[in-house]
Each structure stands twice: as structure tokens, then as C-alpha cells.
Simulated scan of single mutants.
Amino acid sequence: MQTEMELKDDLLWGAGEIAAEIGRNERSTYHLLERGELPAVKVCGRWVASKAKLRMYFAGEQPA
């Protein structure tokens, strides 16, 4: 089980942070997010993604 600190470190807030993690520009990442092509959710109007889930997604693994 992850600690609260580990969970906070795993989260990416906003299309900019997500884009930096996946190596894309913010605009193309935003479009991927809006089309539901990335494992992320909107929280209070802001995109939030897990680093671990993004890495699993790009590795072709199914997140738990």
C-alpha cells in the first residue's frame, strides 16, 4: 500500500505536467486527454494523471 506522500508524488496535475512526462507538447497532450486516449481524469476542471498508470499504458500493460 502506498503512503500519502508516495501518492502525491505519483500524481501529475494539468496537461503541462502530463505532457512533460510523456514527451509531447501540451497542445497535443490536451487533445489526447479530451478524446479519452490517456488514463487521466478531470478534477475541478484540471486534468490529473498517475505517473505509474501512464507508464503502464505506454508499456502496453493494463492498469489495475
Rank of each mutant, 00 (worst) to 15 (best):
E17M: 02
R27M: 13
S50M: 06
R35N: 09
E34Y: 07
L54P: 15
D10S: 12
L54M: 15
T29A: 03
E26S: 02
R46K: 11
S28I: 06
R35W: 15
Y30C: 08
Y30N: 08
L11K: 15
R24I: 00
P39T: 05
E37T: 04
G36W: 01
L38M: 06
A19T: 06
I18Q: 02
T3D: 10
T29G: 04
T3H: 13
S28D: 12
I18G: 02
N25H: 03
I22C: 09
E17H: 02
L11V: 00
G16R: 06
L33Y: 01
R35T: 05
I18R: 01
L38R: 01
I18E: 02
E6V: 05
L12Q: 04
K53D: 14
E4A: 12
K53W: 15
K53H: 07
L7T: 00
G45S: 10
K51S: 04
A49K: 04
V43S: 10
H31E: 11
Y30L: 11
I22V: 07
E37M: 14
L12E: 01
A15K: 13
V48Y: 12
V48E: 07
L33I: 00
L11Q: 14
G45Y: 10
R27F: 12
A15I: 09
L7K: 12
G45M: 08
P39V: 01
Y57P: 00
L54T: 08
S50Q: 05
E17N: 04
E37S: 10
W13M: 12
L54Q: 14
A52M: 10
F58E: 02
A20N: 04
I18N: 04
K8L: 13
V43I: 11
Y30A: 10
G45F: 09
K53C: 13
K51F: 02
G16H: 11
C44H: 09
Y30I: 03
K8H: 09
S50E: 03
L54A: 14
A19W: 04
E17V: 04
R24D: 05
G16N: 06
L11M: 14
G14Q: 00
A15Y: 04
L11P: 10
S28Q: 13
R24V: 01
P39F: 11
E4N: 12
E26M: 03
D10A: 11
N25Y: 03
D9E: 14
M5K: 14
L32N: 06
G45H: 10
L7D: 07
H31Q: 09
D9Y: 15
Y30Q: 13
L38P: 03
E37Y: 15
G23D: 00
R27G: 05
Y57T: 02
A40F: 05
E34S: 08
Y57R: 04
I22G: 04
A52G: 08
K42D: 05
T29H: 04
K8Y: 05
R55I: 06
M5S: 13
A19K: 06
E4W: 13
R35Y: 14
